[in-house]
Design a protein around this nucleic acid. Structure first.
Length: 423
RNA sequence: GGAGAAGUGGCAGAGUGGUCGAAUGCACUGGUCUUGAAAACCAGCGAGGGUCACACCUCCGGGGGUUCGAAUCCCUCCUUCUCCGCCA
């Protein structure tokens, strides 16, 4: 959520920057400012009334104490009018506050200067490409056939137990998945991220804190009886650990990592995009997350990018890095780098990681601040990224490492797997 | 799930209707002293709104109510603790 004070000062610049998202936000920004002006006006009126009635109350108390009951009762009669108008204006104020909140909820974060304009993923900017795309033998298969041949992932069984999008990982498939999780966590820990195990269900306040609510509630599974949401990403519980916190500037940087399953309803897509492991309702992900001093967040984002890069290098997967264009940029992000791994058998790039700097957008909702050197507090910056998402990594390992006799295991994973071949 | 108790500033902990945004201690920040540190002493030290700056307003788990006036009384929800039950 943007801060109204910032909007007031940067209205035009914000509107221009938001054009990169293909939205004309000027009128929204202006109405936010107008509502806020009304809000401040009402607040001023209310404060004045409350000040008066506070003063009267004090006088009444003093009069009672000195035994002047009659005079006190006389003053009492004066308070009833104040009470009424404070109630009335208080209600108007609440309405204005709510109205402002609702407007602010609809305004996405301001893209950074480096974010290219664009409408869709086709306008994302390819920054670099790495690794070699392997030449596969004749008869190479997409992963959904490979997993069947080797009986390592069973989609039908998942259908039976739960429904589409909830696969069962079997035998070496399960082991490979666990190996990847452990490998990712070890890499992240070695890079200074502290490992956390967090709840997989969150309450409403947490959903608001990281921005899934109020807009995207349809994308989360909701447990009605207890009013809890299954997490769509580990970002939600991990970031919300710091909701309502005031940090010391010495606390920076805060670096955390965690493995969680992720649950997404993701209705409305079809075709090869959702084939096999490409899109699931439940999948596993290891997340990295940082809370930074505003001065450091740009640098921190670059560090995260090179960290993810290092992992993909070690996995020997061909990948490329994209800078998302305004049209593809997530609602809460100012700048996002996507990592895509090439799936040779599907002949397409698969997104496996997304690394973002949210600046103060989440912190504002979270009330995550730090004490500045002088008096006062400022909002911290939050960042996060996948390091990494499992299913598509798994898919691309299966596809890119397939040979006629089976599927090889990337060297770095062999100690974690305990085998070097799926055959 | 049943019975009881409690939720106050970073922490501990006073405060049961007015002068309380809140004693005191610890922690923290600045200063004096010291070769330096510790100790001691002095001062400062919650957050939000508002203002050029003050003033002023709000916040004592959340929400609502009683009252001229609520941290203090009432209702409700949440959380924690103790005991009992159930249980991986």
């Amino acid at each position: 959520m943007l801060q109204i004070a910032e909007i007031r000062e940067n209205k035009d610049a914000f509107a221009i920057a938001l054009q990169k998202r293909n939205i004309d936000a000027l009128s929204l920004l202006e109405s936010a400012i107008a509502v806020d002006e009304n809000r401040r006006n009402l607040q001023g009126q209310l404060d004045e009334i409350l000040a008066k009635s506070n003063k009267l109350s004090k006088e009444i108390g003093d009069l009672f104490k000195s035994g002047k009951g009659a005079e006190a009762n006389e003053l009492k009669s004066q308070t009833s009018g104040l009470k009424e108008s404070s109630k009335e204006i208080g209600e108007q104020l609440n309405t204005a506050v709510e109205e402002l909140q609702n407007i602010l909820y609809t305004i996405p974060n301001i893209p950074q200067d480096s974010v290219p304009a664009g409408n869709s993923d086709e306008d994302n900017e390819v920054i670099s490409q790495h690794g070699e795309i392997p030449t596969l033998h004749d008869g190479a298969k997409p992963h959904w056939e490979l997993v069947k041949d080797h009986d390592i992932i069973d989609f039908e069984l998942g259908n039976k137990i739960t429904g589409a999008g909830f696969p069962v990982y079997k035998k070496k498939g399960a082991r490979l998945q666990r190996a990847l999780i452990n490998y990712f966590l070890d890499k992240n820990t070695a890079a200074g991220y502290e490992e956390m195990q967090v709840p997989h269900l969150v309450n409403e306040a947490s959903g608001y804190g990281t921005g899934q609510l109020p807009d995207k509630e349809g994308q989360m599974y909701h447990v009605g009886v207890d009013d809890l949401y299954l997490i769509p990403t580990g970002e939600v519980p991990i970031t919300n650990m710091y909701r309502d916190r005031i940090l010391d500037h010495k606390d920076f940087p805060i670096k955390m990592t965690g493995y969680t399953p992720c649950f997404r309803r993701e209705a409305g897509s079809y075709g090869s995009d959702v084939r096999g492991l490409n899109r699931l309702h439940q999948f596993d992900k290891v997340e990295i997350l940082r809370i930074e001093h505003p001065e450091n967040s740009d640098k921190a984002l670059e560090h995260m990018v090179s960290h993810v890069q290092e992992i993909l290098e070690e996995l020997e997967l061909p990948y490329r890095i994209l800078r998302l264009c305004g049209g593809d940029l997530g609602f809460t992000s100012t700048l996002t780098y996507d990592f895509e791994v090439y799936s040779t058998a599907q002949d397409k790039w698969l997104e496996v990681s997304s690394v973002s700097n949210f600046k103060t957008f989440q912190a504002n909702r979270l009330k995550l601040r730090y004490r500045t050197g002088e008096k006062g507090t400022e909002l911290a910056h939050t960042l996060n990224g996948s390091s990494l998402a499992l299913p598509r990594i798994l898919a691309s390992i299966l596809e890119n490492f397939q040979v006629e006799s089976g599927i090889k295991i990337p060297k770095v994973l062999i100690p974690y797997c305990g085998f070097d071949m799926i055959d």
